[in-house]
Design a protein around this nucleic acid. Structure first.
Length: 434
RNA sequence: GCGGCAUUAGCUCAGUCGGUAGAGCACUGGAUUGUGAUUCCAGGUGUCACCGGUUCGAUCCCGGUAUGUCGCCCCA
């Protein structure tokens, strides 16, 4: 296939400054929120060996069967893959470095790009970004509830609480799930003549999804099908009830959706999704749950675990609506200058002002004063500091407030920093004047 | 991976029943050459996504490709 030189890869988007600034603000908020709950960062490589995901996510999931960027390293034949999700790499790193044995239970988070070769749409990209949280070594329902409650707080902090709601379910223990699956398949096979093509295709790959069909002709069959929750044992039910009790304690509203399943095989017991109706078909902005079997499955000691991932692109689209203002960081000072001696002085003055803590843009590229003042205005700077031949000859600088009334003033450059600090931040000078 | 729709100036979009194109914003220059966001004047704004076909002639019709977008599938 012929590629154009100047063309990004399909489904992989550049995040331009306007958006990237918003992303960084979002990331700062999220990191602060994670720290408040005692979560620590972990960073893992984007490449992993392919079998890691085949074993964890599941051989017969869509992710593994048709969406992984898997390839052979041309140099040594290693089977590599661009990670399609963050949980398995996190478990791998925790096991490889013995974090749990060394330091006990772990509360961790990560942030970064994930890769799935899907058909792109708005809010569904081939390279997308997630914040993920994983907790290892906690068996009780309190950690499940903690994850959900902390997310509820994040939505409030972001102003998204009206756009997102919570659905939860319990998948039970893996044996319980397996028995239900068997019963469900057996039931559906007795009604095979009633199923549509889609349902037949999913009968052995993902029978739970059939229960979610939109085909009205199947409603009666689906309604009478064996229910997963009828297969849950005492412990699973108690755990699920425990999670719900804590959610009620924290006054977090939720909806139990018995048809909620997740596309990754490793989940058990609690699963949850935060969904919105504002992003079309891409309704899920955050999903997660418990995966008590995964650590052992990947070769570790049996370790209870629970976590979630949130899609940054999807959340950013929601957040941009409630956060319409630009989040651009504006400089304090734009330094306008013309003439050789003046430019040299201005270069020094810029550094001098930065010593005082100011954000300073030194004009580059020449141009007349009119042109430079336009740039100063466009930059959003509060103050233009102007140095021409006259100022340079006297070791002085002029300054002018761009956003408020006031005459342009002129001072020796040695006094500029303190004077501007006083004017911009109302800092009193040593003699008490402002 | 399947089906539908879209692609025109830097941005948001008009338009040509087939005769090589516009608006607003932005940008550049000017209104006593050392002063911005207002006002006035002037001006580039463009392979009309790409490749091919039909035609005297295609931005427009047809086919393919690329990308985006909507739905399905699936998921964050």
């Amino acid at each position: 296939m012929a590629q154009k030189l100047i063309q990004g890869v399909k489904g992989m988007h550049d995040i331009l400054p306007e958006d990237a600034e918003r992303w960084e603000l979002f990331e700062e908020i999220v990191r602060g929120w994670l720290r408040d709950y005692g979560y620590r960062p972990i960073r893992t490589p984007i490449l992993e060996f392919t079998p890691l995901f085949v074993r964890s996510v599941g051989e017969h999931t869509d992710i593994v069967e048709r969406e992984m960027y898997a390839f052979e390293d041309r140099l040594n034949g290693d089977p590599l893959v661009l990670r399609p999700e963050g949980t398995a790499p996190c478990v791998r790193a925790v096991l490889e470095h013995n974090l749990i044995n060394a330091a006990g239970p772990q509360r961790l988070y990560y942030n970064g790009p994930m890769f799935r070769h899907e058909r792109p749409q708005k809010g569904r990209l081939r390279q997308f970004h997630q914040f993920g949280v994983e907790a290892f070594g906690y068996a009780g329902p309190d950690i499940d509830a903690e994850h959900i409650v902390m997310l509820s707080r994040l939505w409030r902090d972001l102003g998204l609480e009206d756009d997102i709601w919570l659905e939860i379910n319990s998948l039970g223990a893996s044996e319980e799930r397996a028995r239900h699956r068997e019963a469900l398949i057996a039931y559906l096979e007795t009604h095979i003549d009633l199923l549509d093509d889609d349902a037949r295709r999913r009968l052995h790959s993902n029978p739970l999804r059939i229960l979610d069909t939109k085909n009205p002709a199947l409603q009666a069959v689906v309604e009478a099908a064996p229910k997963l929750y009828e297969f849950l044992g005492v412990e699973s039910l108690a755990h699920f009830e425990g999670v719900q009790a804590l959610l009620r304690e924290a006054a977090v509203p939720f909806k139990v959706n018995h048809r909620l399943v997740r596309g990754l095989d490793y989940y058990n017991r609690t699963v949850f999704e935060w969904v919105t109706d504002k992003l079309g078909a891409q309704a899920t902005v955050c999903g997660g749950g418990r995966y008590d079997g995964l650590v052992e499955q990947l070769g570790g000691k049996p370790t209870p675990a629970c976590g979630f991932g949130m899609g940054i692109e999807r959340l950013m689209m929601l957040w941009a609506e409630v956060q319409a203002d630009s989040v651009r960081a504006e400089p304090d000072v734009y330094l306008v200058h013309q003439g050789e001696a003046a430019s040299r002085l201005a270069f020094r003055v810029a550094e001098q002002l930065r010593d005082h803590g100011f954000a300073v843009i030194y004009h580059c590229g020449g141009g007349n004063f009119k042109n430079q003042m336009k740039k100063a205005d466009a930059s959003g700077a509060r103050v233009a500091v102007i140095i021409g031949d006259d100022e340079a000859a006297a070791e002085e600088a002029s300054f002018k407030f761009m956003r408020e009334e006031g005459e342009q003033r002129r001072l020796p450059v040695a006094q500029l920093g303190e004077t501007l600090a006083a004017l911009l931040y109302n800092v009193e000078e040593e003699d008490g004047s402002v």
